[in-house]
Amino acid sequence: MSELAITLLRLGYLVLLWVFVLSAIGVLRRDLYGTRIVPRRRGARGGDATRAGAPAGDTRRDAAPSRLVVTEGPLTGTTLPLTSSAILIGRAPSCTLVLDDDYSSSRHARLYPEGGQWFVEDLGSTNGTFLGQARVDRPTPVAPGASVRVGKSVLELQR
């Protein structure tokens, strides 16, 4: 074999090696960059986050809530889609919704679906979880639009 062919094959093999490695990384790209986060602009709906979901909710009164919205506190405006899984709220990094709030416990409260309804349960937090004005001492159903207070944050289920 000629010297040129050997060199070309040698470099070609290295190129193939990197094509493999880079395509493997390409497959993982989405996973590496994490979750898709869509910034939402104010103004289209006119209102603040508290009322953002209201119009849609009025038209489908009996529909189940589709998202959890933070309406007060450092995370105001953040929404989480509601799925079938329970949502753990607190300061611990293992929580679904991680609050950076001195008044909340590390595992503060849990929201979970049961029988077509969402319930809030206090996980023995220091400062308590409030549904409206009432302190939650047993799993309590949460209606869409009712405010759940955890530390300094207020959360709301919206349709």
Partner: peptide, 22 residues
């Protein structure tokens, strides 16, 4: 079966997203 849907159940996809959002 969904495993243990208790307190061990968490959705880290959302968790990582939130950290970035903050």
């Amino acid at each position: 079966d969904p495993g243990h849907p208790g307190t061990d159940h968490q959705d880290t996809e959302i968790l990582t997203g939130l950290k970035e959002a903050r």
